[in-house]
């Protein structure tokens, strides 16, 4: 290169610096808008480069071609840089955001579920377990002796109508008839026959009633029986235990109604209901164990007292999950079961 004066030297070195700075600047850019600003700064009408080319006549005529050629080379170089960067930004936008569709469903682990009735039985039992109640079970096919007679419901007692019974097609044996238990209460007598007080048990299990089905009644359902016997249990213990249970299962905001009701095997008798759809729904029957029941299993009612209760499992599940039809429980429809 044949450069004669400082002015020309200067413009070459300035152009070289200009090019380096432009290169460094563009390296940092990854947004389209920043790239546009870069373009204005380095290739725009007011840029140094444009000024050099516009003012080329200020230089010595012999130097003009060299300066012009150098400036144009840089302009072309920067133009290429610009286009390259523009493509990169465009591609980035497509690959890092557009092409990765995070909204597709993930690979759900293959999970199974317990039936909502099993889940509810477990929750109710565990609420009572924490109070020292043991889990026991008993036969779904029973003698009328246990289902009725020992519970102070003798033959021809009108209270038998409270439990429409499904009978087993078998001959009477020693005056006893076979039936599908209408409640879990027969286990009260079975447990007391075999054990001495103190007693605290819960007994989950299926029960059956000859009853027309509708959205709140099933002939095939589950109950959880509870029984506590000791030397000085009274009505406040019954109430405290059941309120504690209701708080654990439904939370403390739920309204509870505790009212007098009649079951021949308790005295006094209780119906406990929960507010549901602006009405009350009965979730359990309870009461202090009737002295005749204690006597029938050989306990001394002067010495021992206790309470019993029977919780409706499906009712609890319906309230907790907002299920509107009890017949869903044994329909085995995956559209229902898969929700729990």
């Amino acid at each position: 290169m044949n450069l004669k004066d400082s002015k020309s030297k200067l413009v070459f070195s300035e152009l070289s610096d200009f090019k380096k700075i432009a290169e460094i600047d563009i390296e940092k850019i990854n947004q389209a808008q920043d790239l546009e600003e870069w373009k204005i700064k380095y290739l725009g009408r007011k840029s140094f480069l444009t000024n050099v080319l516009r003012d080329i006549k200020n230089y010595d005529i012999s130097e003009r071609p060299a300066i012009g050629s150098e400036a144009n080379k840089i302009r072309k170089f920067l133009g290429n840089l610009f286009e390259e960067k523009q493509n990169i930004i465009k591609n980035n936008q497509q690959s890092s955001l557009g092409a990765f569709d995070y909204s597709l469903s993930g690979r759900i682990p293959n999970i199974g579920r317990l039936h909502p009735v099993t889940q509810t039985i477990r929750e109710v039992c565990s609420a009572f377990s924490s109070l020292g109640f043991q889990i026991q079970e008993g036969p779904e096919v029973e003698w009328d002796l246990y289902n009725f007679d020992l519970l102070n419901i003798p033959k021809n007692h009108p209270a038998r109508d409270m439990w429409d019974t499904l009978w087993i097609d078998e001959e009477e044996i020693e005056g006893k008839k076979m039936l599908l238990r209408t409640h879990t209460s027969p286990m009260q007598a079975r447990i007391m026959e075999k054990n001495d007080p103190p007693i605290r048990v819960v007994i989950p299990g299926k029960c059956y009633r000859y009853e027309a089905t509708d959205s709140t009644h099933e002939w095939h359902f589950n109950q959880i029986e509870g029984l506590a016997i000791d030397t000085n249990l009274n009505f406040t213990d019954l109430k405290g235990t059941l309120y504690d249970f209701a708080r654990k299962i439904f939370g403390s905001e739920r309204k509870i109604r505790f009212r007098c009701d009649y079951f021949p095997f308790v005295e006094p008798g209780v119906d406990m209901s929960i507010d549901w759809n602006n009405d009350w729904i009965e979730i359990l029957g309870a009461g202090m164990v009737h002295p005749k029941v204690l006597e029938s299993v050989g306990y001394d009612p002067e010495k021992y007292s206790g309470f019993a209760f029977g919780v409706g499992v499906e009712r609890i599940a319906m309230i907790r999950h907002g299920i509107d039809d009890i017949r869903h429980f044994y329909g085995n429809d995956m559209r229902f079961l898969s929700q729990f």
Binding site: L131, G132, T236, K239, D244, F258
Partner: peptide
Amino acid sequence: LARIIGYEKIPVSSLSGQIP
């Protein structure tokens, strides 16, 4: 007595005594 005075007037207590 309980039903006429009202079940809601009867207090609650926690189970005490021996756990079987």
